[in-house]
């Protein structure tokens, strides 16, 4: 599995309220929700994002609410993966459970610039910035989590047990 696309860059502590504002949480419909992805921090994101594009952010990405709608809208609007210095723990769990690829890599999150073309190999954790020519190695997932991802999410993995 891999993705290649243009980078959208965000700061530290991007919270779930800006990823998907609670005022839209009166529906569980992912397509409808995804029209508002990142609206309060980058209103143009949903118009500019192309399938496979890469979100790059600082520390504590996804802090705040437990709403699974947050990773879901990022995935549904076509984002290929999120690279951050660190993730808030509930967001991290939710992203794995719903199948949004996420990678922790401090150096990549620091150096990659908005607009760069980046490709990511999820199996190896290798991130290549084609604009700068630099390569980064992200932390691999523990085996336990890799199994959940391979089986297609948490519930699918439970069915096999």
């Amino acid at each position: 599995m891999n993705t290649k696309g243009t980078v959208f860059k965000y700061p530290d502590n991007v919270d779930t309220d800006v990823i998907i504002p609670a005022r839209y949480l009166n529906t569980p419909d992912a397509k409808e929700l995804s029209k508002h992805c990142m609206e309060d921090i980058d209103a143009d994101y949903v118009n500019r994002v192309q399938p496979g594009d890469v979100m790059v952010a600082g520390w504590n990405f996804g802090c705040g609410s437990s709403r699974e709608h947050a990773p879901l809208v990022i995935k549904t609007c076509g984002t290929g993966c999120v690279i951050a210095k660190s993730f808030a723990r509930i967001f991290y769990r939710n992203a794995i459970n719903i199948g949004l690829p996420i990678l922790e890599c401090e150096a990549a999150a620091e150096e990659i610039q908005a607009g760069d073309t980046v490709s990511v190999d999820f199996d190896t954790g290798i991130i290549i910035d084609h604009t700068s020519g630099k390569t980064y190695q992200a932390e691999p997932f523990p085996e336990f989590i890799q199994n959940i991802i391979k089986k297609g999410g948490l519930l699918a993995s439970l069915k096999e047990m």
Binding site: R67, R93, N94, N97, L158
Partner: peptide, 14 residues
């Protein structure tokens, strides 16, 4: 601890 909806679904099932 707080979790997401998929964890809730798995918790309700198992």
């Amino acid at each position: 601890t707080g979790v997401g909806s998929t964890d809730m679904a798995a918790g309700m099932a198992t």
